[in-house]
């Protein structure tokens, strides 16, 4: 092996090592996947909410980024549990963290405010209910 060949081997080896290190997660995911399957596959909302809440707390404490959608997801869980103020706070967090969600989050917040102004409705589960088209 001459010098050039050795150089080439060293370069390609170091590139390989660099590549192996490179794929770092952009976000902290924790138990988010489990949280969705708890709710959707196992039909257990309580455990699902717990997993979601733990993931958000762990992400915030670890200094990693909270993934897109988690605050909004937690907001809707709070809403369906009869906590509209909590829902508004989390929808607001979502739109501040991810501007892409602003339109939807603002719409949901407005809808909750509208519902709060009216006398307490029987139908507290649905948010967009009024938009229903025949």
């Amino acid at each position: 092996m001459n010098k050039q060949q050795i150089c080439l081997v060293v370069i390609s080896l170091s590139t390989l090592l660099l590549c192996a290190c490179a794929p770092k997660s952009l976000f902290y995911w924790g138990d988010y996947e489990t949280s969705i399957s708890d709710r959707w596959v196992e039909n257990d909302n309580d455990i699902g909410e717990q997993h979601l809440q733990q993931t958000i707390t762990a992400a915030e404490q670890s200094g990693s980024k909270v993934p897109p959608g988690l605050y909004a997801d937690y907001g809707i869980m709070l809403y369906r549990r009869g906590n509209p103020d909590g829902a508004i706070a989390y929808f607001d967090k979502e739109r501040k963290t991810f501007p892409e969600s602003r339109l939807l989050m603002s719409k949901l917040i407005d809808k909750i405010h509208e519902k709060q102004k009216k006398t307490p409705t029987q139908d507290s589960q649905s948010i967009l209910g009024e938009e229903k088209k025949p």
């Binding site: 997660s25 952009l26 976000f27 995911w29 988010y32 996947e33 969705i36 399957s37 709710r39 959707w40 596959v41 993934p67 897109p68 959608g69 988690l70 909004a72 997801d73 809707i76 991810f98 892409e100 969600s101 939807l104």
Partner: peptide, 18 residues
């Protein structure tokens, strides 16, 4: 349950599926 992370890790805002 398994679609959000792969898509968000590519760098997109993914609306919460639930």
């Amino acid at each position: 349950s398994t679609i959000t992370a792969p898509l968000a890790e590519r760098g997109y805002y993914v609306f919460p599926v639930y």
